[in-house]
């Protein structure tokens, strides 16, 4: 057994785990993929909490107002819609960030 064969065998032994790791498939690009999907999901999910709560709160208060004073329902509805649209923009930012993560990054 000459030194060349031993060297090749050693190289093969060292190279084998490397190849196995590559076949299992965790490289930098995969990590980026995982982080991107996870980031998009977390951004949308957490970002929707506050906006959903506050929009429901606004709608409930508008209901109370209309029940107390039905003549003002038109004005209350318009104010509620505009306020909800302003509130919603936080969730919309989260959506834009999620879309950026999914399609642009």
């Amino acid at each position: 057994m000459d030194i060349g064969t031993v060297w090749t065998a050693m190289q093969a032994a060292v190279a084998q785990p490397e190849q196995a790791a590559k076949a299992a498939g965790i490289s930098g690009a995969d990590l980026v993929l995982v982080a991107k999907y996870l980031g998009a999901a977390i951004a949308m999910g957490v970002g929707a909490i506050g906006s959903g709560l506050s929009e429901g709160f606004a709608a409930g208060k508008a209901c109370e107002g209309i029940a107390r004073n039905p003549e003002a329902s038109g004005k209350i509805t318009i104010t509620m819609i505009v306020g909800q649209a302003v509130t919603e923009s936080v969730a919309i930012y989260a959506l834009v960030v999620a879309v950026l993560l999914l399609f642009v990054v």
Partner: peptide, 16 residues
């Protein structure tokens, strides 16, 4: 930023 991203996000979100 808020007024333009709101319109864009709502319409794009609807499409998605």
């Amino acid at each position: 930023i808020s007024i333009s991203c709101r319109l864009f996000g709502n319409i794009m979100g609807g499409a998605i």
